[in-house]
Amino acid sequence: MTRKDIRIQTVGGTRFPEAPLPPRAGAGLKGDHVDQILADDYRIGFLEVHAENYMGDGGPAHRALSAIRREFPLSVHGVGLSIGSERGLDPAHLDRLARVVERYEPALVSEHLAWSSHDAGYLNDLLPVPYDRSTLDRVVAHISEVQGRLKRRILLENPSTYVAFEGSTMGETEFIAEVARRSGCGLLLDINNVYVSATNHGWKPMNYLRDFPLELVEEIHLAGHSEDVDDEGDRLLIDAHDRPVSSDVWSLYDVVISQIGPVPTLIEWDNDVPDWPVLRREAQAADAILAARGPASLLGSRHASA
C-alpha cells in the first residue's frame, strides 16, 4: 500500500485517513515493535490489535496506536465480548468496544465464536459452545446487538477447540454459515484454528474448508500451534500463538488463497513474542503467497471492503 492509496476522509470529523485493509499480510501489534514498524523500509500491509488492550483512558499505549493508525490500516480484534455467553453481552463492555472503534476508526472489527465470562468472572480464555439451535439463536442475537451498537458489520472468527459437546446437533461449518446468514456478519477464517480443531476432532481440514462459506471471508488469521496428546495418546494440538506458522497450515493457506484470491492475512504471535524481524519474516512469507496467487487469480474474487 502506498501513501497515495490512503484517501483523507473529511466527512463526520474523523481523525484518521480512511485506510481499508489491503489484501496483504499484517501483524498483531506488540508494544515493543512499534518503533521498528514505523521505521522499517518494509511496509507491513496492516496491523491488528486486541481491543481490550486499548480500553484504558489514555497513556503510552494509545499514543503508540495513534502513531500506527496514522501510518497503517488497522483491524480491531476483540477477545473479551463473550459472544457465546449464556448470560448475555455485558453492555458496559460493548460500550468500551464502541469507544475503541470510534477512537481509531479501524477498517475491520472482529470477534470470536466463544465465551469467556461467567458469574465467576472473566476466565481469560476462548471457551467452546455447543452447536445447537438455542446456541445459534443466542449467538445471532448477540452479533446483531454488537452490529447495532457499533453501527457496522463485524467479522466472526472460527474457534480452535479441544472438546466437543454431546448436545451438539450441527457441524461447526453449518453452524457458522447459519450465524453469518442470519446475522449478516462477515467471517474471519483462522486457518490454524481449522487445522488445530480438525486434528483434535478427527475431521479432514480440506472437508472443513469445502463446507465453510469462503465467500464471506474478509480476513485470514495464521498462527503457530503446539502439540500434546489426549487421554488415548492421540495428537492434540494447542492454539498456542507462540511459534512460527506450521508447514501444514501454510499449505492450507495456499489452497484457500488459490481458491478465493488474496485476502488480508494476519500473522498472530502473542506468546514468547519474537523480535520484529522474525515476525516480519512470517508476514513476508504470507505476502509471497498472496503475490504468487495475485492478479491472475483475482478474477472472480472480491476484495475485503471496509
Binding site: L123, N124, V163, N200, D230, D231, L236
Partner: peptide, 29 residues
C-alpha cells in the same frame, strides 16, 4: 470432574482435553 456433556470425538474421553482449558485459564491469568 469434566463437566457433564463435554466429550472427545467418537466417544473418546475428554480428561486431558478439558485440562487444556484449565491450563489455559490458570497459565493465562
Amino acid at each position: 470432574p469434566v463437566p457433564a456433556g463435554v466429550v472427545g470425538p467418537r466417544g473418546k474421553k475428554a480428561g486431558k482435553r478439558f485440562a487444556v482449558y484449565r491450563n489455559n485459564v490458570a497459565v493465562g491469568l
